[in-house]
Design a protein around this nucleic acid. Sequence first.
RNA 1: GCCUCCGUGGCUCAGUUGGCAGAGCAGCCGUUUCGUAAAUGGCAGGUCGUCGGUUCGAGUCCGACCGGAGGCUCCA
Length: 600
Amino acid sequence: MADPIESHVDLAALPKEERLSRMRHSAAHVLAEAMVELMPEAELGIGPPIDTGFYYDFRLPRPLNADDLVWLEERMRRSIAGKHAFRMSALTKAEAEAKWAAQPFKLDLLKDLEEGNVTQCTHAAFTDLCRGGHVNDTGEIPAFKLMSIAGAYWRGSEKNPQLQRVYGALFESQDELDAYEQQLEEARRRDHRRIGRDLKLFDLIENIGPGHVIWLPAGATIRRELMRWIEDLEIERGYQHIVTPNVGKKELYVRSGHWSHYQEAMYPIMEREGEIYALRPMNCPSHIMVYESELHSYRELPIRLAELGNMHRWEKSGQLTGMSRVRIMTLNDSHIFCTGPEQVEEEIAGVLHLMEEVYGTLGLRNYSYRLSLGDPDDKEKYVDNPPMWEMGEALLRRVMQQSGLEFYEAKGEAAFYGPKIDVQFQTAAGKDETLVTIQVDFHLPAQFELEYVAEDGTRQRPIIVHRGVLSTMERMVALLIEEYEGNFPLWLSPVQAVVIPIADRHVAYAEEVAKELRAAKLRVEVDGRNERMNGKIRDAQMRKIPYMLVVGDREAEARAAAVRVRGGGDLGATPVVDIVAKLRGERDAKALVPGVFKDA
RNA sequence: GCCUCCGUGGCUCAGUUGGCAGAGCAGCCGUUUCGUAAAUGGCAGGUCGUCGGUUCGAGUCCGACCGGAGGCUCCA
């Protein structure tokens, strides 16, 4: 017989997070109640709270549709209006197994529960296996909305059956729920796929193949500016740039371990004249070949080999997303060959500094550092060498602690050959995405039997630091589009200024103005179309061009232009020489917002 | 890859119960020569993602495939 458990809770006294979590979890119960009424054959999975609400997983006799969501939500609201109490009680394992005999997922959950630890929760006519964490009665469930239907594997493993997941949003007030929906709308506005098309930055053409980015002239300009910039920063820091091929022989990848650990993520293999080639999924093996091609002295190390190298990965079709998840990408990559742990620490500290500088200049703020660890139990995913993992993880942890930067740790997120520091960004849609990684690698040096000649003449094994800073050009530009909402800083703007002649007779002068700006390597267009000035301004605004230089009779007379800043600011008539100086200064300072920069 | 949904000119969308493919913007040709977010007239543009099926007849119904979106799994 079930024993009741006292579970009254004073919601107002709880921290908001705990209160919300109880409300969300309770709402999931009410969703399940509604679902078993809609489809009595429904098999129940789990229904936890999440950041924005809750979900519940079900195996159902048929696919859910939008009308079902409307019905379920209605039914939930009735249950909420009924103010049914949530009652927790304990039962024995045997009782529970009998009770959920027809519920395979509940039985699966029960297997992991210890006797004496089995509890259930009842509200209205519905009882679910549950460890608790509810509000007192359904009436305490506040503003919510069923959002979407999705597929999800039972217990998150693709080896298990796939269930239908219903997502709900839930907040304490209707205002907060409305704000959340507005936030989703805002995310859609900032979506790099939409802006990328509107501003003609990039394209994905069906016949070229999914995940294969076409950089249109405007996008290619942004990409080129970023690449020039990062290469210059690297040169200042002692990096040497190399260029290596996009393909390599099978033997190279067998030796690196990619063949056995990474092959399903590689493009199909090529074969000719009895030789097998692969499109490279990573640049490390090629860079190692460069290191290996000569004998190195400890005096040369650290050797920092860098390349804006192309990588080719057969991402699963369902995983491709605009420019942020693609199949062919260009990574701002480098491999730093170090003599030992001390040098590794110094080098990683240097990389972290560079990251802070680069992200600071780009105005990026929503990121955090994650120490991604291996999983000793997962011998399939990771190379099996426990001491190597322990050494690498301890080393990275020490560097992060010394850097003074905040970080958190995550198990099972490492690369197959070693632990890493991931830079995690929040996308416009609120999702966490890895931008770049820093990895310590003892594995590849061993695989390739790399050496350097130490001070005492002996041969020693170097340690490799793998690192990106700007990430792949694809993912970085996707992120920047969303960050700036397409309003790029002057230095990155594909077109930095458009000269707008008021009438046809001003076109010649407009060309002269443009010529002066171009002499300063500014990217300028003249809008000589047969349009009214208002129309040209509107078009320039929509194209998010930082500066509009309006020229009419008065300006032509004074060798000036009326300067309008993107967003509406009017700087008034300004001599062309001053405009050139101002834009140059703003560009070279990489100012984030046009019109604000003041020349020192 | 898996689950659900979606696919009509370059873009955004309309298209009744299956009955002759439409609009706005963009483009092109004119007219207008204009002072800070859309002047105006005309023209052109679509094998309705592809292939197959049902039907007298398919944009519309069915199937497969391709592509996209949201999830799951995986990852820069």
